[in-house]
Amino acid sequence: MVELQAEPLNLEALQNGDPNEQTRLVELYSDCIYRLALKMLANTHDAEDVLQETFIKALKALPNFEGRSSLSTWLYRIAINESLMLLRKRKLEVAIQEDDFVDGENEDSIEAYQLLDWCCLPEDVFMTNETRAELDRQIQKLPENLRTVFILRDIEALSIKETAETLELSETNVKTRLFRARLKLREELSTYFAEFIEENTNGKK
């Protein structure tokens, strides 16, 4: 989440359609919203669509904004909804019905299988294009309801409470989903780094 700088946004000016204040709103939050959309959709074109739609809708709806949640939470919510709408449309287009995850299902599958400690790999291994592509690929493989929670909490660094507010979920629900998302990503990355280590130690033996 963006730390508000010295001068906080003037809500009244925003609601009166002051273009200078609207521009400040864009400057403050467009990076986060774009990043969120990119993580949700893994496509720069779609992410830009979501970014634009989010701000168009936000500026239009601002006069009715009641301030029950923070402005950023409110923007995130619009962006998430726009992203989900786009994902649904995409799914209809390819006519694939993904098996959406239901909370409480597969309760027994909370197990960690990969026990390789890859934390001590050299830092630059985590920054290669290949690793970055893998990170993106694994986020995309998460079911939507785990992906949204992981992106808001762990990538955008919202608190549990803010994440719950944004998604209109209970905090307990957010924690459960977050745990599943993290464990799942950990599993996948462990597999990935295990292969990496194997490839890089072969021949040295």
């Binding site: 990043r35 993580k39 990969q114 390789l116 400690d117 890859w118 934390c119 985590f126 920054m127 690793t131 970055r132 990170l135 986020i139 762990d154 990538i155 660094a157 993290r182 464990l183 990503l185 950990r186 990355l189 462990s190």
Partner: peptide, 14 residues
Amino acid sequence: NTLKKTIDIYRQQS
């Protein structure tokens, strides 16, 4: 440890 690291590298990347 690897769970922590998973979160870390996602944060660093973004």
